[in-house]
Design a binder for these strands. Structure first.
Lengths: 339, 339
DNA sequence: TTGAAAGCGCTAACAA
DNA sequence: TTGTTAGCGCTTTCAA
């Protein structure tokens, strides 16, 4: 039992307006059209009392928190920050608030966020993870709803998913390279088990095939989606018997690391070697040379996620589906025509 | 009235354990030490029923949402993203959830977030704004509590505030420049009304004075904390009768814009002109040359904010205070000794 | 220590 | 259209 100084309640408003609290409640929820005079009386009462409805009570009564959760691995990664930006705006527009969960690549934490659903902390969850899953997260996730997966798949989960068009993006990236005369094209990418990695690899192969270039396994380097791995990969690239004409990096972080590693090795980009990245994070046009990359619309992903999540909340029977957010090539300075 | 399929309630647990729900509630809240046998019975009941307490009910009952709000102008700005990262972690540690509000430099939105407090959507608010205020936000803010101001002041508000040590940071930045032989030092900064701008200007002047350099008003350029303004400022700098030896930029965004503008004008950094920035955003060591800058610990600011906010929530009578987060110079490549 | 019961402030079924 | 009233699932007072 609470014991703070009494705040004004809907009952006070009702009393002052000479109505029942049910009437006031209905008015507040737009469930009724009242005669103008009554509306005035209610509004006046609300004004004079400075009334604001207690959400805690409303939520218990309706069984809805009108809150959704957004789970991301980290928020200091601009990709997820943009996603959050889109999600927050769309949620606010719908009168929902957004609670932020940062997974930090920790399964236990991620599972903890899933639990938000059964304490009614949230009505639904937008979930982005970029860790290869060993099945633990999958099993838990299948017990909760509604959950919408963003950006990266958790294989074996039966939920609505929103990804970018990885294959098409990779295809365009590599075609951009082949169109500029590059034929010896390496691919530096993330952990092999990730769906995005597989799809981008597939787009890479398709573009090679289109240009009649043989796919060579030894030109594909798997690691992490990080700057550090990009730097390491620069060494691996140099160790190759023949220096590639170009590199398709599966993330801008990798591309930026590559840029640094290659510079340290005295290899000039794009004069000696062209690079295309993936994501178009905000730093992509800050580095030298400015990075040509595949733009992912993370904000749109966040928005779409909220929209579809709200739809599922309002109609729990809704069928699960999969959406692809289109990507586009952003041409900057890291690719030139091969002499 | 809710009509979903009944979920298991604390009453079900109590029934199964052969106790009253009061006892179970007390046990759950660690308000009692029960005989081991009783504990076992309760735990067993919870297990078999898969019970999880309904937070909505708990919140109404206690009158607390156990949620805090974090309001930032934008989250895609890495500075605020880091702040959010620190805040989320510290909040989670205390069992609080964090709801995100993005102000987008819109007073109405910001005031809307303040209202979260009187609907009990949150128990307290962490507030970061970087807009010069005309008094509107100030007046509203003084009506709400608990609110903690982060990073930038809203003059005239009587709330707990956490800022970085702007003056000291600026002082160290400029001293770094004077120590490298630069004497003709421009200062490109944000809107004059902002506290941070005033404090950094004061640190700039102090460092000049220490080096026996006369302060000259025409070397100070006010604009926005943006890359665009940095680019414009590059032109203003060139239009100066004598090119300065160095520039102290009051934000990394400005510094990066400056870098671009100067490069376009054929002025080399640091050979022709040295630059020090402020903030140490993640892009600062991605640009060429890597930016020497004053590191602000946004994550610590977020953590401190949560800690002090929780303290205020738990003791509303607590006196308002002001904290400074220390800053430090991060030396990279944008400053060299003046020949 | 334990339980009965009264709220917390709303919403919504039902009746008028 | 409007009001009466019974919950929503907890916490906490109060009495046993």
């Amino acid at each position: 039992m609470k014991m703070a100084e009494k705040e004004t309640t809907i009952q006070d408003v009702a009393d002052l307006a000479g109505l029942s609290k049910a009437a006031v409640s209905r008015y507040l929820n737009h469930k009724i059209t009242l005669p103008p005079k009554t509306v005035e009386r209610i509004e006046a009462a609300i004004q004079t009392l400075g009334f604001r409805r207690n959400l805690l009570a409303q939520r218990l009564s309706t069984g809805r928190s009108e809150t959704i959760g957004l789970v991301v691995p980290e928020i200091s990664n601009p990709f997820y920050a943009e996603m959050a930006e889109g999600a927050e705006d769309e949620a606010a527009r719908a009168g929902y608030s957004l609670i932020l969960g940062i997974g930090r690549n920790d399964v236990d934490r991620e599972i903890e966020f899933l639990r938000w659903l059964d304490t009614h902390m949230v009505d639904g969850l937008l979930f982005a993870s970029n860790r290869p899953d060993d099945g633990l997260l999958r099993d838990q996730m299948n017990r909760y709803r509604p959950v919408i997966l963003l950006d990266e798949d958790i294989p074996g989960t039966a939920v609505t998913k929103i990804f970018c068009d990885n294959r098409q993006g990779a295809f365009e990236a590599v075609r951009h390279l082949t169109e500029h005369g590059h034929r010896h094209i390496a691919h530096v990418t993330g952990p092999a088990p990730l769906m995005s990695v597989g799809e981008r690899l597939s787009g890479y192969r398709a573009a090679l095939m289109e240009a009649d270039i043989r796919f060579r396994d030894e030109l594909v380097f798997h690691g992490f989606f990080s700057r550090e791995f990009g730097q390491q990969a620069a060494s691996l690239i140099q160790a190759l018997p023949a220096r590639p004409h170009a590199i398709f990096a599966a993330s801008d972080y990798i591309a930026i690391g590559l840029l640094e590693g290659l510079r340290d090795a005295g290899i000039r980009v794009p004069q000696d070697l062209s690079i295309v990245g993936f994501d178009d994070i905000s730093s992509a046009d800050l580095v030298t040379p400015r990075l040509t990359t595949i733009r992912q619309d993370a904000e749109a992903m966040g928005r779409q996620g909220v929209l579809q999540l709200l739809a599922t909340i309002n109609d729990p029977g809704m069928a699960v589906r999969q959406t692809r957010i289109p990507v586009s090539l952003t041409v900057r300075d890291s690719v030139i025509v091969r002499a």
